[in-house]
């Protein structure tokens, strides 16, 4: 009982410290909601892209290999599951596309405006993290509904099918949040690398294409050869969109799913830890060397 008041005070302190980052989230979330034209354009693009991808997969599923075995029987996911995967991916694209980065952060580091941020009582890592989360969420909120709606109305097997169970749906939401956090934590490393290089472009280009290919954004990871897939699933990239999309489409369940969620959590902790260390080194560098 004696420790209770102390516990309460320290918790309140932590909460009040969190408040400023929540305020950042709110501001950037509302800021994102004002870009309506961009959202319309995004919806149109994502819808077209999703449809094209599904038609492409349809061609593969309907093809027959030279040995006479139908393509569909060799594919790791059913066609309906692949269609669901693609629609969900397009609807929540803004949460996971690594290339959707905040250019303001890059310019503030390069032109030195970041000094202004350091003149305030804030931790820049936490600030940028909540900002990035917020702008991704607001983009996704604006874009997901029309895409989901149309996808649900499409006839089977081209449309979006309901999740396997309520439990699968809840786990989808959980891993969606985890995957978003892993994506943002990864992007943070790229932002912070700008402190150490003259231009972020090189690292950015390499990182973007790696994420794109290795996270299952181009083709879902189950379509990779088994040995390759085993390795890919351990990488941080697989902890982004791969887990929630496959849980939703029913491709990932049971032990494999629990393992995937565990890996997501480990990567989140690791990436945030590395990011905070790098950030501290970066702030040291600025304060010691003046730039």
């Amino acid at each position: 009982m004696k420790q209770y008041p102390f516990f309460k005070v320290s918790r309140l302190l932590r909460l009040s410290r969190l408040r400023k980052y929540i305020a950042f989230f709110r501001l950037y979330f509302t800021m994102g909601l004002q870009y309506r034209t961009a959202a319309f354009a995004g919806i149109a693009t994502q819808f077209t892209w999703g449809a094209m991808e599904i038609l492409m997969f349809r061609a593969f599923y309907q093809s027959t290999a030279p040995d006479g075995i139908a393509g569909a029987s060799r594919f790791p996911m059913s066609f309906a599951a692949t269609a669901s995967y693609i629609w969900m991916q397009q609807a929540f694209l803004a949460l996971f596309m690594a290339w959707l980065m905040d250019n303001d952060i890059f310019t503030s580091i390069m032109d030195g405006n970041v000094a202004y941020e350091l003149c305030r009582p804030i931790d820049i890592y936490n600030m940028w993290f909540s900002r990035s989360l917020a702008s991704r969420c607001s983009r996704a909120v604006l874009r997901c509904m029309p895409i989901l709606l149309v996808a649900v109305l499409l006839p089977a097997p081209y449309g979006l099918t309901a999740p396997a169970s309520l439990q699968a749906f809840l786990l989808f939401l959980l891993t969606l949040a985890l995957g978003l956090a892993v994506t943002v934590a990864f992007c943070m490393l790229i932002y912070i690398s700008t402190f150490f290089t003259l231009s972020p472009d090189g690292i950015r280009t390499i990182a973007m294409s790696m994420v794109e290919f290795l996270s299952g954004a181009v083709i879902p990871l189950p379509f990779f050869p088994d040995r390759v897939k085993e390795i890919l699933e351990l990488l941080p990239f697989a902890s982004m969109q791969n887990v929630p999309l496959r849980i939703y489409s029913g491709d990932l369940s049971g032990y494999a799913m629990l393992r995937a969620i565990g890996i997501q959590a480990v990567w989140l902790v690791l990436l945030v830890g590395i990011g905070k260390l790098l950030n501290r080194a970066a702030v040291q560098k600025i304060t010691f060397h003046g730039n």
Binding site: K20, I22, A23, L27, M31, Q34, N113, Y116, R120, P121
Partner: peptide
């Protein structure tokens, strides 16, 4: 030569954010 206001939002929104930052 620099700005500390958030560019795309009304000035009052920047102030509200500063209120939280400085508690």
């Amino acid at each position: 030569q620099r700005t500390q206001l958030w560019w795309d939002v009304p000035v009052i929104d920047s102030y509200e954010l500063l209120k939280e930052i400085y508690q």
